[in-house]
Design a protein around this nucleic acid. Structure first.
Length: 123
RNA sequence: UGAGCCGGCCGGGCGGCCGCGGCGAGGAGACUCGUCGAGGAAGGUCCGGGCUCCACAGGGCAAGGUGGUGGGUAACACCCACCCGGGGUGACCCGCGGGACAGUGCCACAGAGAACAGACCGCCGUCUGCUCCGGCAGGCGGCAAGGGUGAAACGGUGGUGUAAGAGACCACCAGCGUUCCGGGUGACCGGAACGGCUCGGUAAACCCCACCUGGAGCAAGGUCAAGAAGAGAGUCGGGAGACCGGCUCUCGCGCGAGCGAUCGAGGGCGGCCCGCCCGAGCUCGCGGGUAGACCGCACGAGGCUGUCGGCAACGGCAGCCCUAGAUGGAUGGUCGCCGACCGCGACGCCGCAAGGCCCGCGGAGACAGAACCCGGCCUACAGGCCGGCUCAUCCC
């Protein structure tokens, strides 16, 4: 799971990443990546709306995405802001499906050497 | 053994790898170690409280809630016990359970008639006409006993009575009212006498009666930090005056429109009116911005065990325990094994058989995530466990 330092917590951070950042969509999720001008560690945030499910499934999807993002944190460049938005099919997807969708979306944006990091092998 | 009633409880377990939040310790720090970390409903937000701020002259009229009795409780619309009515052979269950002689409204369909009811068929008397002398038809009048309709037809059964009938009268029964006796804290129950003789339902229709009810909510509220020129009022000083300066208090985004300083906008006193108090800003539309840290905040109507009182809900006493506290929101992710459930298949074992044991494969594994905290209610829930009781049948 993600450390507190790598969490995106401000509303403006979300807004600029979603509006200014580059975007790649897959079946279960949409990924936004924005290079912040401020130096700092890479930040990750998640958007899981009510359409995904009730509070239990939303929490579950969020926790899985946090674990997946943590395993790919080292491949992100410094000061990158990553926002993962979950779509309704994410509620029924398995951990491996979410992982491969995240990998392919990240490699499409060239933001990560995601292809070299198979699921679960980092650390 | 079968069928059923009631109550309580659990809500998979173990392990590997990788993680997150709070607290404590160590360390200059990175970090390391230890420890704790979702529910029976955490849910809906329907009641009741604690806590916080505001208000706390009053009167009248409205509004909302509760509704058998007694207890429990901080309180309740909750819980317990009992009463009454209804259902069940029974365990037990159900009841939004005050009032229908204060008033108003509504009772569909069917039916002649549905609320001081009602002559359709029918029964009876009388008059007229006809007559095959049995009666028939029509007019006038009496009758609620019988038929039929209905959820309900203005007490029931038997008799007296009568032209035929009728609580018109009589006996018994049911019901209502009054008085008295006994029991119970009480709702109420049991009994006796007398009375007029009989009166529909609906109050989750208006209504009447009794009792209760301040407003807003943890984004409550408080402390600190940050912050821009100002605006208004009061008061003091200077000045001929416009005005200037000091102190105190209140307010604070921009644009547009409207109302307003004693003939007073607006606010408070639950909603309205009267009345009282405070009073200089207020209202509406469009557009935009912000919501940082800490406290509140987790020791509480707290939990567990024992004992005593009580039918019980619950309460008293003693001992032990401290048990989530996030704020883009921790309490987990993933893999394996085991145990329980369902389906299919086969070697073997038990059994007359239905079937059971064992093994393998596949499937399913619910409802649902704390956000100030408690007590309830309601709703959702795969599967499983335990206890008590009733009825039927069989055996001793």
């Amino acid at each position: 799971m993600l450390d507190r330092r790598h969490r995106l917590t401000s509303a403006t951070g979300f807004a600029t990443a979603v509006r200014r950042g580059r975007r790649a969509g897959r079946r279960t999720l949409v990924v936004h990546v924005h290079q912040s001008p401020e130096p700092g560690p890479p930040l990750v945030g998640f958007v899981v709306g009510r359409a995904v499910g009730n509070a239990v499934t939303r929490n579950s999807v969020k926790r899985r995405l946090r674990h997946l993002a943590r395993e790919r944190l080292a491949s992100l460049p410094g000061s990158a802001v990553l926002v993962v938005r979950a779509l309704p099919p994410a509620a029924a997807a398995t951990y491996a499906e979410l992982g491969s969708d995240l990998d392919s979306a990240l490699s499409r944006l060239g933001a990560a050497a995601g292809t070299a990091v198979p699921s679960g092998t980092l650390r």
